[in-house]
């Protein structure tokens, strides 16, 4: 996992799950403490995610005015996450 506080982005590893969900959450909370405008979660390296990550994305989308998800192309979970962030479901 890679956290870039300047770019306000978190790049998730190949398999993102409960093992690192709290670490990601804390990074996002820290970013949120500085500004609640935008944050990016990068899934370009991530093949597998679990429910805790989906929840985290849903939570982050409620906290940041502009939550951006990148690297979703071709990922099996892309539609679900996009729908969550867009509030379509």
């Amino acid at each position: 996992m890679k956290i870039d506080t300047k770019k306000r982005s978190v790049s998730l590893p190949e398999s993102a799950d409960m093992m690192m969900v709290d670490e990601v959450r804390q990074a996002l909370v820290e970013m949120h403490g500085r500004s609640d405008k935008r944050a990016t979660i990068d899934f370009s390296r991530t093949n597998v995610i679990d429910t805790s990550i989906v929840q985290l994305v849903a939570s982050a989308s409620k906290s940041f005015a502009g939550l951006k998800l990148t690297g979703l192309d071709g990922k099996p979970y892309a539609a679900r996450l996009t729908a969550l962030v867009e509030g379509a479901v």
Binding site: Q55, S59, R80, V89
Partner: peptide, 22 residues
């Protein structure tokens, strides 16, 4: 039809990531 209802998921500051909310 499928629906992942995330309305019960709290914002980041309140989120206990080890609890399930969907």
């Amino acid at each position: 039809y499928q629906e992942v209802d995330a309305s019960g998921v709290p914002p980041l500051a309140d989120l206990d990531p080890y609890n399930y909310h969907l």
